[in-house]
């Protein structure tokens, strides 16, 4: 019985393999910030091709330009050179097709959890019936386990709950690309693992393309299809891209028993702490 389930799971995973080519194309991107001390090159010659439905994790030392790179995908920022294209069209400004889960949750404190999500759904689907929009909000709050806290305002919620609302808000508008900037960095270990599992489960059901910045190698190995490792700034670029081959749906204890897990983990650690070690500890 156990065997059968695993086989089934594997076949599902194969049929859900990401398809399509150059859905999101980061081509030869450089970014230079003007500073009082002259131009500061943050990123130089970044190339990355992302398939639809892929789960990408981005890792690199603090200040190397991860947020800068993802801001060019979300549209808050434009490359100084090169281009970022979604389905062949250059990204010019932010839009709900590329929803962001912000570093500080960015929930409006005067609105309840429900109202925060509703504001997003209502803005993206102004023509939908109100009952329909309310149903979408309820469904997504329930999905992150917050059905009971719908009427609470952010100051009454814990960090983990706020992050759940932010994720529900992001998913409720069905973005093509979901961008998360160190979403679980401020959470305790248990909450963090819970949220990783929920995110993975939701992603398995909905399959949007995910770009996620993290500091945690284990998190990346558990979640991602590919781990993008960045070199140090200034003029940082992608040092290496690591394929993470574990079949989906993934089980944390199962992949941690896989000897390959430790090879990958050591490889990433070696990249970060030997080949591209950082002077200041952050």
């Amino acid at each position: 019985m156990q065997m059968l389930k695993q086989v089934e799971a594997k076949s599902v995973a194969i049929s859900q393999q990401p398809q399509g080519r150059s859905f999101l194309e980061i081509a030869n991107v450089s970014k230079v910030y003007p500073t009082p001390k002259g131009p500061y090159p943050v990123l130089q010659g970044v190339n990355l091709s992302i398939k639809q439905g892929e789960f990408i994790c981005l890792i690199g030392h603090s200040g190397c330009g991860k947020t800068t790179l993802l801001n060019m995908v979300s549209g808050f920022n434009q490359p100084s050179q090169g281009s970022v294209q979604l389905r062949g069209k250059p990204i010019l400004k932010p839009g709900p097709d590329r929803m962001v889960v912000f570093q500080g949750y960015a929930l409006l404190p005067w609105l309840t959890a429900f109202e925060n999500v509703y504001l997003a759904v209502d803005s993206v689907h102004p023509k939908k019936l109100e009952a329909e929009k309310r149903a979408i909000v309820r469904e997504h709050l329930a999905m992150v386990g917050l059905a009971d806290a719908a009427d609470k305002k952010p100051p009454q919620l814990s960090g983990g709950m706020k992050q759940r609302v932010a994720i529900a808000r992001a998913l409720a508008i069905r973005p093509e690309v979901l961008i998360l900037d160190e979403p679980f960095g401020a959470l305790d270990a248990i909450t963090k693992e819970e949220l990783q599992e929920e995110l993975l489960k939701i992603w398995n059901d909905h399959r949007c393309t995910v770009l996620m910045i993290t500091h945690d190698i284990d998190e990346a190995l558990f979640l991602a299809d590919r781990l993008v490792m960045m070199t140090n700034g200034p003029a940082a670029t992608i040092g290496e891209v690591m394929e993470i081959p574990f079949p989906r749906p993934r089980d944390r204890t199962q992949i941690m028993e896989d000897p390959e897990y430790y090879d990958l983990r050591n490889h990433a650690l070696d990249f970060l702490y030997n080949r591209f070690a950082h002077d200041d500890t952050e």
Binding site: F76, P94, P96, L111, L119
Partner: peptide, 26 residues
């Protein structure tokens, strides 16, 4: 008004009227 709130409004492309009543005034 915190940049975070403005960023949320930009991603969601909130209408100016909604931005005024739900973000700016509160």
């Amino acid at each position: 008004i915190p940049q975070d709130y403005k960023n949320v409004a930009r991603v969601l492309q909130i209408s100016p009227r909604k931005y005024f009543f739900k973000v700016l005034i509160p």
